[in-house]
Amino acid sequence: MDADALSDARRPEWERLDALSRAHRLNGAQVDELIVRYRAASADLAELKTSVGDSPQGAYLSTILAAARLRLTGASDSILTQATRFFGSQLPAALYRVRWTTLVIALAFVLIWAVTGAWIAADPERVATLGPPDVLQQYAEEDFVEYYQPAASFAGMVWTNNAWLAMQCVLFGVSGVWPVWMLAQNAIGIGVATAVMASYGYLDVMLLHILPHGMLELTCLFVAAAAGLHVFWAWVAPGPRTRGAALAAEGRALATVAIGLVFALGLSGLVEGFVTGSALPSPVKLVIGAAALGAFLFYMLVTGRRAVRRGESGDLVEYEAGTPTLVAG
Rank of each mutant, 00 (worst) to 15 (best):
G329M: 02
L326R: 13
Q168C: 08
S199Y: 10
T63P: 04
P150Q: 05
V257L: 07
T194P: 04
L17A: 04
M300R: 09
M206N: 05
A5D: 11
R306V: 01
K49G: 01
P124D: 09
E312W: 11
L70K: 15
A140R: 05
S78H: 01
Q30A: 13
S62Q: 11
L91C: 05
G173A: 00
F172V: 03
L286F: 00
E47N: 10
V104Q: 08
Y148T: 02
V223R: 08
V196G: 01
W233N: 11
A234I: 08
H213N: 03
G131K: 07
T242F: 02
I35E: 15
P12K: 10
L280I: 07
A163I: 04
P281A: 12
L229Q: 05
P281C: 08
S42E: 10
V192H: 06
V192C: 04
G58S: 10
Y38M: 11
A255R: 09
R39G: 15
R305K: 06
L111C: 13
M300Q: 13
L45W: 00
R305V: 04
Q138D: 15
A291L: 15
R306I: 08
P124F: 07
A264S: 15
F86T: 06
A83H: 00
W100H: 12
I64F: 02
R37P: 09
A227M: 04
A68C: 12
V302A: 12
P132F: 03
A264M: 08
R99G: 00
R99C: 02
A253P: 02
A155I: 13
L34C: 09
A193Q: 13
R85C: 01
G74R: 15
S55H: 10
H213F: 02
A248Y: 00
L211V: 12
Q168E: 08
V271E: 12
A40G: 09
D315R: 05
S278H: 04
D315C: 09
I35M: 13
L316D: 12
V158F: 13
G260K: 08
V196K: 10
V36N: 06
G239F: 08
L267M: 15
L301S: 03
H230N: 06
A195T: 10
A237T: 11
R252T: 05
A226W: 00
A321F: 03
V257W: 01
A226F: 03
W119H: 00
L45E: 09
T73I: 15
A40F: 02
V236E: 04
